[in-house]
Simulated assay, not measured.
Amino acid sequence: MLCRRAALILLATSGLSPLAHADPSGGDPFRSLQWPDLRREFFGNAPVVFDDRVKVRGPAFAEDPMNVPISVAALGLAEIETLVVFVDRNPIRKVLEFEPRAALASVGFRFKLEQASPVRAAAKTRDGVWHVGGTLVDSAGGGCTVAGATRKDGSWAATLGRASGKLFASSPLPEASSLPGASRLRVMVMHPMDTGLVGGIPAFYVNRLSVRDAQGRELLRLSSFEPVSENPVFSFDFPGRVAGGLRLVGSDNNGNRIDSHIE
């Protein structure tokens, strides 16, 4: 008791609070005050570790907050079941959820950023542990609360749901250098991807995509959410060459179907 009293007196005379060394961010590398809530929201009581093997790449400053390019790769981890991407300071935090299945644990896309924020990816391995990486993207902001170009000019209805894709014989991922046979698939879906945060325009977005091979086997599955950019383009990587005859299928949150063949 005397030792504790002496310690409090020492802190008081030095001008420090007993809580001066407490970290309100819960050990987050970005010192984000949102992190404790994010951890509870996305992971509950599951184990979480910050892991440099989850690579998140994006611009230091987003010149166009409605189209911020991000790539995620977690090739240094084995047995990844799910990748989740989320943004601390967006009004809608969850951007996408990706199940690699036969693909590599990597995905590229563009999204809307409301203000400067850490952008994070979390990879869940088969043992139930979430491995979290991230990058800080600065921005003037406002990307989530502005209508897209096709919504403004009304052209979205004429192209809604059109999809296309292209296979590339190699992958530009630095992490894929040890996989000389790695290939890339890029797909695009025409859709306004409305966040629901613009007056008079309800949320309207692609919420499910799946790539299947010629035999109908599902190679990957993606759930996307409102912050993904208008007319989204997604890049996926595979450990080897992927044969043609692929099929991209999915839907949006209004039940409109997406179905396109990729040769």
Rank of each mutant, 00 (worst) to 15 (best):
L33I: 14
S210P: 00
V72D: 06
S210H: 03
V189I: 15
V56D: 04
R184L: 11
V211A: 13
L11V: 03
V146A: 15
A140H: 05
L19N: 11
N256P: 00
D252A: 05
S229V: 08
S210K: 13
L167H: 10
P69E: 10
A78E: 15
G58D: 04
G128K: 05
R5P: 02
P172Y: 06
D52T: 10
S14F: 00
V242Y: 02
D37F: 01
A74I: 06
V54A: 06
A73Y: 00
P100N: 12
P91K: 01
L38T: 11
F61W: 13
A123Y: 07
P174W: 12
G143N: 09
E175H: 03
T135K: 04
V146D: 10
E226Q: 15
M188D: 05
R151D: 13
R39F: 03
G26C: 06
M193T: 05
D194H: 03
P118Y: 10
V56N: 08
M190T: 04
P18W: 02
D88H: 11
V137S: 09
I9L: 13
G216L: 12
G216H: 13
S71Q: 14
G200Y: 14
A147N: 06
L219T: 04
V187W: 09
T135A: 11
R162Y: 09
F30H: 05
E97Q: 15
T195G: 10
Q215E: 10
E175C: 01
V95N: 13
A12T: 08
G216A: 12
P174L: 06
E81N: 06
P18E: 04
G142K: 07
E230I: 06
D194N: 15
V129H: 04
P202H: 14
D138N: 11
H191K: 06
V146C: 09
F42S: 05
W35F: 11
E81G: 01
G165Y: 03
G196H: 04
S106E: 12
V228S: 05
V48S: 05
P227D: 07
A163Y: 07
P29S: 02
L185P: 01
A74F: 08
D37I: 00
N90F: 09
D28K: 08
A203M: 13
F30T: 10
M66F: 01
S223V: 00
F168P: 00
L179A: 01
L179Y: 02
S170R: 15
G240N: 12
V54D: 03
L197A: 11
G154R: 05
L220T: 12
L38N: 15
S223T: 01
I92W: 01
A149P: 01
I201S: 11
F30K: 08
R4C: 12
A214T: 11
L8E: 15
L113C: 11
L11F: 01
P91Q: 02
A203V: 09
Q115L: 09
V56S: 13
G240M: 02
S17L: 14
A157W: 09
A158K: 14
G27N: 10
R93N: 15
G26M: 04
G26D: 09
F86E: 11
V228Q: 07
E97H: 08
S106D: 08
R212Y: 07
V132Y: 10
A122C: 12
R110N: 14
D153R: 09
P227A: 13
I262D: 07
F225E: 12
R221P: 00
R93Y: 00
R212Q: 13
S210G: 02
